[in-house]
Design a protein around this nucleic acid. Sequence first.
DNA 1: GATGAATGAGCGTTCATTCAT
DNA 2: GATGAATGAACGCTCATTCAT
Lengths: 211, 211, 211, 211
Amino acid sequence: MNVAKELTSRQKGAIETRKKILEAARKAILEKGFDKVSVSDIAKEAGVATGSFYTYFKKKEDIIEELNKTDFSRLAEIVNQMKGKSVIEKLDNYCRVFMKAVERSGLEICRQWLRNHIASASTSLENSGITKYQGDILAMKSVLNEAIRQGQLREDTPVEELAFLINSQLYGFMLIWCMTDGEVAGSGQTKNYCQYILKNSVQPYIPSAPQ
Amino acid sequence: MNVAKELTSRQKGAIETRKKILEAARKAILEKGFDKVSVSDIAKEAGVATGSFYTYFKKKEDIIEELNKTDFSRLAEIVNQMKGKSVIEKLDNYCRVFMKAVERSGLEICRQWLRNHIASASTSLENSGITKYQGDILAMKSVLNEAIRQGQLREDTPVEELAFLINSQLYGFMLIWCMTDGEVAGSGQTKNYCQYILKNSVQPYIPSAPQ
Amino acid sequence: MNVAKELTSRQKGAIETRKKILEAARKAILEKGFDKVSVSDIAKEAGVATGSFYTYFKKKEDIIEELNKTDFSRLAEIVNQMKGKSVIEKLDNYCRVFMKAVERSGLEICRQWLRNHIASASTSLENSGITKYQGDILAMKSVLNEAIRQGQLREDTPVEELAFLINSQLYGFMLIWCMTDGEVAGSGQTKNYCQYILKNSVQPYIPSAPQ
Amino acid sequence: MNVAKELTSRQKGAIETRKKILEAARKAILEKGFDKVSVSDIAKEAGVATGSFYTYFKKKEDIIEELNKTDFSRLAEIVNQMKGKSVIEKLDNYCRVFMKAVERSGLEICRQWLRNHIASASTSLENSGITKYQGDILAMKSVLNEAIRQGQLREDTPVEELAFLINSQLYGFMLIWCMTDGEVAGSGQTKNYCQYILKNSVQPYIPSAPQ
DNA sequence: GATGAATGAGCGTTCATTCAT
DNA sequence: GATGAATGAACGCTCATTCAT
């Protein structure tokens, strides 16, 4: 009915409410931790009725997914905006941005996100399609494949394996970051390691250029 | 405070009860996590009435204080039994044993372990002592330091960084293994990657071999 | 109340909407039962907004009033297509068809049907008209009466009682079939019993045959 | 610790509370129907705190099981106290008592009981052992077997089939009784039918008595 | 007339804590 | 000291109903 450009004031209000709930949730979870925050806490903080939470989110847990999505939404874009750079630079940047996003989401939200996704697939979110893990792998692979097309990597680069390797390293950093209350593996600490891994792991596949 | 030589049988029984509650709490909390364990769970496990918990602890949280005197020591032993091997072999073995142990524990136990250790410090067990993470890092460092002493690695090997790096990779494998219902990153799949990482990460610091 | 010849398109639309809601409600309530169907379920099924329900009905319950004008007529046809057969054969066939129909509907549908019809009259569908139970009794009675007219049964056959008896047996089979996950009282098992009952119950009223 | 004869006042109080809750539940469910009664309604009626309901019953549904058990508890005993009577009398009595128990439990409780047991076995009660259906079959079979031992029935009596047949008839009565708001198939109406079924079904297996 | 976001009371259930015995 | 029945606030979540647009 709409040409999807102009929003009715109803729609704008709904988006606003959704945003208010998300920000209230972020604030409350950051302060007290997911388990200690009740849905009505969040609703109160957002200035809406308890039931309104469920207008926008099916389950309490779902808010974590949403907060995570917000934090990581810029990831893909960043990669796509580095056309001129070398593979190492692209991947290095990817890793930095990833860890920055982890940090920005905050300890409690990251923890809850992990808890949600550790759960067996069947009991977790709808799984209607692709998981965050699969998404991350795909993003990484697309960077590597792009690099192959541009001649930055050899044709026989083991894309699958490298994507898995780098990604598992990042997941490890994320996990340790949560386990140590943010004291170990923060973006500040990991950027050196990122470069180190990348140099050692990817360079064997860079064609002639004596990097 | 007491002259403390002879205890009445009532006092002895009390000490016994207290100990039973503590052990039951340790077991239950390690299995399910502090928040998910109820006082009556602990009491049932200990074989006492729910109310008896409150004879010894004013609040549920108080039990955490008592439990933070954890004994520790685990994987280090494996390492110490490989005197004759090369660093790469030692580390490779460490990684294999680690992932095998992960697999042997089973998906659900591994998941629960992750959930427990992701938890924020305040509600977690063993946080005033040494954490599993710290223990793992120490074990890895001792392997590397031993190798330096034996001349298998150069003096300037960045022990701290390598230990962190390898360990975070293993944690990443473990996390992904849980997230994919055991379909990705099992020990079968990861052993090649372990060698690959180790070769790329550690070999630069092996003295003679001209990288 | 209106001169009621020409309707504005708005009025025509309103009548249409009302009809859609009624049909959606009938379908949903038959499937899930009144209590388990929410107003928004009905609205969704009808393809209108939740609020629109309240344009036509003041309260959720009001829809029941409207739905109680049920069309009816089902099993009777089967019976009427067996003109040449004996009473026993007719009834036997009725019982087989009944249990086959039960089985064909499937466990879950049969269960839901039972739940719906067990429900107290106030919340049940089709309660001011004729119930399924009454329909089944009527069908059975018409078979018996027809048989009397044709001289297949004696004039003093207790039609009412026999109809009730046979029907309650069939309902009992149906119930047990659901309660045992389809393992007991399926059509395969019951057909022998059907004949057995019929022989024992009906034959005393068959004129000549000196049982 | 107790020799199970003398009850402490604590235990007596608990039994009293349990009884209060059961009677409050019976009253409330009879008045309003299971779905319309909340656990806190029951607790209020019983004069206890909401949570106390869960001291005695794991789920709201469980109260139905309990009420049913009370109503049917005398069934087995009655049968066992009729040593001198004929098979027909015993079974006739069983059927009467069964339907009386159905009636005594009340429409709403009987309905809820049916709803609970129609559900697929896996989602229903614990099933740790024998279902009500199986229990009823066993009771009926024991009556028949006893009669065989006493020479009241022939050795070749199809015990299994008869037990199934009679029991399914009773279940059918129960179902119809609920479906017709207690207007059809009450104990007053069914007792004649019970005798009729029994005479027709069981008598062929009575040894000497000249059919 | 139609919409659907917003409401808030109410649901079944859990559990830390108390206290009479 | 030990008990376990009793408490009642709080939880996540549902849904009939309202009303500004």
